[in-house]
């Protein structure tokens, strides 16, 4: 049996200054090429969970951890964050704080340089990565002169250039305006086509429903649901119990069913919802 891309078993974690664990007995796994969406209210422990996957927690951000996290079959705790970065790329929430270099090409080259990628190879990868995120032609500019959406795409390019097989993004669009959000999600859509494995944390359920194969719902440190996204979002009752919302179309069908005592099959995509609705109403 081939190793899973990410496998988390009985993971419990507490920060030093808190009594209650922020993650409680987490279990899930994802296959290569799958995109997992993690949703949940603020403070649920989503970021902490994501950082467990590349070892940032507990190696750099300390705390008490139990259970195991395996990436491509090997234990994260037996490796260092720097070593893990060859397999797992991490994009943070705040675009500006992720940029440390003078020009865009150097920003992209920075991670590669730390991995010891030869210069000729770097050139090729920079061109590739910038093309993937649509920043071709910006090589010599300063990262600080970019818009938020562009900066976040640059951060993604810098991670992509390191050629990880897994990409984790912690609320990559929450600091961005609608245009910036679209830009970043367009890049994400491509990643899926390249066969990358990914974890995305985001509050935009419509996007999560559209892009993610599976969804994990985290609430107060516990996994409340872990299933294909369709299954998670059509369980509207549970979503509401957890103070979360399903995508708008799903919410609509559900309200409609409730208000008129109908039984339209719930769906998360607009096209399917229209079909389902039509088949009942005619």
């Amino acid at each position: 049996m081939a190793a899973k891309a990410i496998e988390v078993n009985n993971l419990t974690f507490s920060y030093p200054d808190t009594d209650e664990p922020v993650l409680k007995d987490i279990n899930f796994s994802i296959n290569h090429g799958e995109i997992l969406g993690i949703i949940g209210p603020t403070g649920a422990g989503k970021s902490t969970l994501a950082m467990c996957v590349n070892g940032l927690v507990p190696q750099v951000i300390n705390g008490e951890m139990e259970g195991t996290v395996k990436v491509n079959g090997s234990e994260v705790s037996e490796s260092s964050v720097a070593k893990m970065s060859e397999d797992v790329g991490f994009v943070f929430q705040e675009p500006e704080n992720q940029l440390s270099q003078m020009t865009i090409e150097e920003e992209v080259a920075f991670g590669m340089g730390n991995l010891g990628v030869p210069r000729d190879d770097m050139r090729v990868r920079i061109t590739d990565a910038l093309e993937q995120v649509g920043l071709t032609g910006f090589e010599k500019r300063s990262p600080l002169a970019l818009s938020g959406g562009q900066q976040q795409r640059l951060a993604i390019a810098a991670v992509l250039a390191m050629r990880p097989s897994i990409m984790i993004m912690d609320e990559p669009t929450s600091m961005l305006d609608p245009k910036g959000k679209n830009e970043v999600y367009d890049v994400l859509k491509n990643l899926k086509d390249y066969g990358m494995t990914g974890i995305i944390i985001d509050h935009e359920v419509e996007r999560i429903a559209a892009y993610c194969d599976k969804v994990l719902v985290l609430y107060e440190g516990e996994v409340q649901m872990f299933a294909p996204s369709e299954e998670v979002f059509t369980n509207i009752k549970k979503m509401h119990e957890l103070t979360l919302n399903a995508p708008q179309v799903t919410e609509f069908l559900s309200s409609y069913n409730q208000a008129f005592g109908k039984d339209v099959k719930l769906s998360t995509t607009l096209e399917e919802a229209v079909d389902n609705f039509e088949s009942v109403c005619k």
């Binding site: 750099v60 720097a82 070593k83 790329g89 943070f92 991670g111 010891g116 991670v159 390191m162």
Partner: peptide, 23 residues
């Protein structure tokens, strides 16, 4: 910001042992 940057650097293999290269 500096604190956050240190996490980012860690994720970009900054403290990795061995040969480094530069553009």
């Amino acid at each position: 910001k500096v604190h956050q940057l240190s996490y980012v650097l860690e994720c970009r293999a900054f403290s990795r042992k061995g040969e480094k290269t530069s553009l």
